[in-house]
């Protein structure tokens, strides 16, 4: 009888101790992890946005479920940044951050998360690829050359650049159609 009870309370005690340790680790690393993600986001925002001196991650507005980060220089609006994603990558979603200046043209693109093939699709992380979007606007064909657009694909990897193009296009459309025309956000400002 005693042995049978052992079968219950030994695993229970071990699990309880494990739960306690996990809770302790979680609560002591929580802030640090959030800070790391915030720094990462801030770094990406600084790369994609035009020159600004406010804190875009604190001045964001929500529009149709999307967060739009607003960049200002001395209080006047200079651009927006928005997260965009494509599920058409080679493996998993590609999350990107697109910066767009106040005239509606792309000021920068940064890849936040991807799981593309190292050495092939992962070249979407190179600066030369990311910079090829700079200055493009709503009327430009943001597509890979294979699809009749103006963005260079890589030899052996068309799918990943195509997915990034799709995500950038979506972001450019959204900002141009919904944000710039929205007087509450781009009008007078704060």
């Amino acid at each position: 009888m005693k042995n049978n009870l052992n079968l219950i309370y030994i695993p229970a005690i071990v699990s309880a101790i494990a739960a306690f340790l996990l809770a302790f680790t979680f609560s002591s690393t929580k802030e640090k992890i959030e800070e790391a993600y915030r720094q990462e986001m801030l770094k990406a925002l600084n790369i994609v946005l035009p020159k600004h001196n406010n804190k875009p991650d604190q001045e964001k507005v929500e529009l149709e479920g999307k967060e739009v980060y607003i960049a200002k220089e001395d209080g006047s609006l200079v651009g927006f940044a928005i997260k965009s994603k494509s599920s058409k990558g080679y493996s998993g979603d590609i999350d990107i951050l697109v910066g767009i200046d106040k005239s509606g043209k792309v000021s920068g693109v940064e890849i936040l998360k991807h799981a593309e093939t190292p050495g092939l699709g992962s070249k979407i992380e190179t600066d030369s690829f990311k910079n090829s979007f700079k200055g493009l606007g709503k009327s430009d064909k943001i597509m890979v050359k294979k699809d009749g657009g103006i963005i260079d694909q890589f030899s052996g990897a068309t799918i990943s650049p195509r997915a990034v193009c799709e995500a950038v296009t979506e972001a450019v459309r959204f900002i141009n159609d919904k944000v710039i025309t929205n007087s509450k956000i781009s009008g007078g400002g704060k």
Binding site: P11, V14, S15, A18, L21, L22, T25, F26, T29, K32, I33, A36
Partner: peptide, 18 residues
């Protein structure tokens, strides 16, 4: 398994933080 999984989660969290 409980013991191993706990240590793995701890490593995961600490690595993510630091």
């Amino acid at each position: 398994i409980v013991i191993i999984a706990s240590f793995v989660t701890i490593v995961d969290l600490i690595m993510n933080a630091y």
